[in-house]
Each structure stands twice: as C-alpha cells, then as structure tokens.
Design a binder for these strands. Structure first.
Lengths: 232, 232
DNA sequence: ACCTGAACACCGTTCAAGT
DNA sequence: ACCTGAACACCGTTCAAGT
C-alpha cells in the first residue's frame, strides 16, 4: 500500500535533510488539493514524507494545527483587489477569485467561514474590505456588512465543496426536482421541476449552473447591502 | 466504559423486542441532540441500544444512511407557516423557527444545505415557499430566489454549528478583533475592533450577537430579493 | 429474520528508546 | 533536536456462525 509505514532506518543516517513544519504543510496542501481537507489522514502525510506518524505531532501539532496551516496557506493565495475600485466591483472581484482558489482546495472555505479573522492571511483582505465599505458610506455598519457579504459568498462555496464529496448528490437533486414538473397538486415544486427539466445534467452543465447561482447569490447580497445606503 | 460492547447473550432469549430501523434512528437523533451529527459513532449507537455494531448496518445501512435518517426526522420538526402571509413574513418565520430547531441538532443544517430536496420532509416547505414567492410576483425566478434565501439562512446556521464545535473559536475571534481597535495603520480592522470591543464576551452575550447577526443576514437577503421586484 | 462475535483495515495521539 | 517503532484506544464495515 502507498499509505503504509516507511522502511528506511533513519533519515539522518541516510543523509536526508530534516523534516520541517513547512514541508509538512506543503504535503498537506498538496493532499488537500487532491482529496479535500477531510480526505487525508495524518498517517498519509507521514507516508508521503517517508516518516513515522509521530513526527507530524512533533513539528506541527495535532490534526487541527495541520488543518489551520493548510487554511492559512490557501487563503494567502486569494488576491486582494486595489481599494480604488467601486465597492461592488471590489467584492465581486475578491469573491469570484476567492471562489476559484477555494474550490481547488475543498473544505478550506468552510474553515475560513468558521475561524474567520483567526487566519492571519485573511487580515489584509478584511482590512481592505471594511475600508472600501467605509468609503462607500456604510459608516459604522461596515464591519457587519463585510461579514454578511463575505459569509454569503464563502458559505455557499463551502456547500458546493460538500456537495462535491457526495458524488451522486448533484445529479440526484436535479433528477428529483425534474420529476415534480408534472405534479399539479404541488405547484411550487412543479415550477422548480420545470426549471430543472430545462437544464443539462452532465458535469460541465452542472458546473456552469453552480457558477451562475454563485453570481446570482453575490448580486442579491450586494443589492441587499446597497439597500442600506439608499434607504437613508 | 459506557461505549463498550453489550454483554447479554441474545435479545430473543432474554425476551427483548427486536430492534427496528426506527429505534436506531431514534437513538441517533438523541445522540445528535447531545453531541451533534459528527459527535457520535455507529458503535455508540449500538452500545446505547445494547446490540452489536453490525446490527445497525443490517437494519438501516451504513453511517450515511443513519445520518440521512436523522436529517429527515429533524427537518420534519420545522413548522411550515401558512401561505396566506406576506412573503417576507413567511420567510422570516420559517427561517427563525428553522434556526431554533436546527441549532438543537448541530450538523443537520449543513446536511440540509447539501442534500436539499433529497430530504423528503423538506418538500412541503419547498413547495410552499416557492408558491409564496410566485404569488409575490417573482414569476419563473421563484425557485432560484427560494434557493438563495434558504441557503443564506441555513448555511449561516451551519457555520454557527461548526463554530460551536471549536470551543475557543468564538471567544478567540472577539478578542483577536478587539486587539485591532488601536491599529492606526489598518483602519478597516480598527473599525471592526472598535465594534468588537463594545460587545460582551460571555456565552449569553455571544449567543445574542449571533442571533442578531442571523436576523441582519435574513433582512439583507430579503432586501436583495425584493430589489428584483422593485427594479422591474 | 435477526443477532452474535469476531475480524479487518483503518484512524489520531502518545511516548520511551534510540541516534 | 529529531526520529523510530510500537502501543493505545478508538473507528466503519463485513461476514460466518448461531438461534
């Protein structure tokens, strides 16, 4: 098995460089890209680095610490737009690009939503986003509005990630809804069924539908925030 | 240990009634209320029912099947408002009451967001919600708007649940933000810090802040949907 | 049909002992 | 300081054997 224990007698005696916390996180980020944040074990990281499982605890800490290291590294890859653009464009940009990065590392979006500003690499984005909202006239509500917009977008990415780990879920949902198209006794479900029926079901179609719904969510959330400005 | 194997020789020979799928889901729902959907094991359910672990697979299926059974039961406890109320009130009601139920069973909100209409007991709510939106004038966009509102509310509950299983996360976040209140070089974080500083940090305060943010999110999402009506 | 009892292939974490 | 190697207390799932 590829996930079994290493064979070598000693790293030092074999002339190998010592393992570092950084190299452990590197391997964990790689595995997260392949299988998602819940798709690997401490033992698999150890096998990939050709060391015994206890070594990970020694250099990084428990599984939680490794996960936080991965999260911080992935978040740092999300580009922060310049703060000279209109606020709606700023959020559209950071969230679309953020989604692209996060979807490459399934499970990280969820973590980001949960721990938020506890991830050091998220701080520059939070600072810039709140500044942009203050400049747009949200005043002291800027932090709350930031959190709302941020959560709307990335909690949805977290759901998309989760759905990806139920291989059948996406297709099942579409098929289940489409079956209601002729249900006259339940007009709400019938309407949803009619919409579902008109849509493709192969993976490319589903990916396009997900992207479209993400942007729909984004625009509705921005509209919801904007209503705070116009109703003053 | 309370989670160890049963001792009795045979249920039948001891005059005990046979285990049913329903009783297994009962026990799983109970454990979910105590520890959350990720807080119990198949073996713990077996111990609580005083049977061997293989019995769960025999009557219900694998862990996934048990989780879906729990999800369906919990969702069925969310009351569906009458469809004679204005659409905003309808959603306010179902989402506030839904949150109350879901927070009693941590982890179920996440499942609901992921599998959606695949949970049979969610269908009456979906039907009624889309009908309410059609009556309000959303036309063929009603299913998409329903999904948006639904996701906004319950994906946030899922994040609240997750945060609950990081005992330190909530307090850490507040403290981390408050520390930025004097950071003149980062005015965005400073603004968030000032807000955080003015807030209580004991569990009751934090729960109240979470409820407040939930309602903020709800109203902003409803505003975002309403903008589709007024801009026609 | 229902359940027992064990086996299998995994987990994360800990820690004494070696180098 | 760093790593080995093993042990511990768990998992979910499977399945032959009993009743």
């Amino acid at each position: 098995m590829a996930d079994s224990a290493p064979r070598r007698r000693s790293r030092a005696s074999a002339g190998l460089p010592p393992i570092t916390a950084d190299k452990i996180i590197d391997a964990a980020v790689e595995l997260t890209g392949e299988r998602g944040l819940d798709g690997w074990s401490i033992r698999q990281i150890a096998t990939r680095l050709d060391v015994w499982p206890g070594v990970i605890a020694h250099h990084v800490g428990d599984r939680e610490a490794v996960v936080m290291g991965v999260t911080d590294r992935v978040i740092s890859r999300i580009p922060v737009p310049g703060d000279d653009v209109p606020w709606r464009d700023w959020f559209r940009s950071v969230m679309s690009e953020g989604r692209t990065v996060l979807r490459e590392y399934p499970g990280v979006a969820r973590r980001l939503c949960v721990v938020g500003p506890n991830v050091p690499s998220a701080l520059p984005t939070i600072d810039a986003g709140i500044r942009v909202l203050m400049k747009a006239g949200f005043g002291e509500q800027a932090p709350e509005v930031y959190r709302f917009l941020f959560n709307s977008a990335f909690a949805l990415v977290a759901v998309e990630d989760d759905r990806g780990s139920f291989p059948t879920a996406r297709a099942d949902m579409g098929r289940a809804m489409a079956a209601f198209a002729e249900d006259d006794s339940r007009p709400g479900l019938a309407a949803a069924g009619t919409v579902a029926r008109g849509r493709g079901t192969d993976p490319r179609d589903i990916a396009a539908q997900e992207t479209e719904f993400f942007h729909f969510t984004l625009e509705r959330s921005l509209d919801g925030a904007e209503a705070m400005l116009t109703s003053r």
